[in-house]
Amino acid sequence: MLTQIAHLYATACLAVIFFQIALIAGAPLGEYTQGGQQKGALNAKGRIIAAVSIPVLAFQGFAILSAAGFPGLGWPRWTAYAALSVSVITMILNGITPSARERAVWFPVTTVMAGLAAYVVIVTL
């Protein structure tokens, strides 16, 4: 069960990476990200922020997979705690964003992701 939960978390990270790639490519989803400050496509600064989030999300996914014992990773334990921390912070920020659309879509998603990461971290203590 632990590996399935970790794989689900990593898959969610991958899905969010694809969302970030869509933002970088100009998808008109500005109201669903970064506080919903931009309608339509993100400007250059917003696209840079989306690009920076991609390696962070990849790190999170790999860190939780490693904590669950995925073969070949063997990352230090602190990386799982870092991934969980980023997940919880992201959940909180999506819960308090002024954008109703971002809150409606991403708060539930990031809440589930934080729960999955917490499960892996707690079970593997």
Results as ranks from 00 to 15, higher is better:
43 N>P: 11
40 G>I: 14
97 T>L: 02
100 A>V: 10
87 S>H: 03
99 S>Y: 10
41 A>P: 04
53 S>D: 09
75 W>R: 00
67 A>M: 13
63 A>I: 00
67 A>C: 11
36 G>Q: 03
56 V>S: 06
54 I>R: 11
93 L>M: 13
70 F>P: 00
95 G>S: 11
72 G>C: 06
93 L>T: 14
86 V>Q: 05
46 G>V: 05
92 I>L: 05
70 F>W: 13
100 A>E: 15
49 I>A: 14
37 Q>A: 15
80 A>M: 11
42 L>Q: 12
45 K>M: 08
83 A>V: 02
101 R>I: 10
88 V>Y: 00
98 P>S: 09
49 I>L: 14
52 V>C: 08
78 W>Y: 15
96 I>K: 01
46 G>C: 09
67 A>N: 00
79 T>A: 07
53 S>H: 07
54 I>F: 02
46 G>R: 03
75 W>I: 06
74 G>T: 07
47 R>P: 12
87 S>Q: 03
84 L>C: 04
63 A>T: 04
81 Y>S: 06
48 I>F: 14
64 I>F: 04
52 V>R: 09
95 G>Q: 11
74 G>Y: 08
60 Q>K: 03
68 A>C: 08
90 T>W: 13
56 V>Y: 01
95 G>D: 10
36 G>H: 02
79 T>W: 12
82 A>G: 13
54 I>V: 14
62 F>K: 00
76 P>R: 04
71 P>I: 05
80 A>S: 09
97 T>Y: 11
92 I>D: 00
39 K>V: 08
43 N>H: 03
85 S>E: 04
67 A>K: 11
82 A>V: 15
56 V>H: 07
100 A>W: 03
98 P>I: 03
95 G>H: 15
93 L>Y: 13
79 T>F: 09
98 P>F: 09
101 R>E: 13
63 A>D: 04
59 F>C: 14
63 A>W: 10
52 V>K: 02
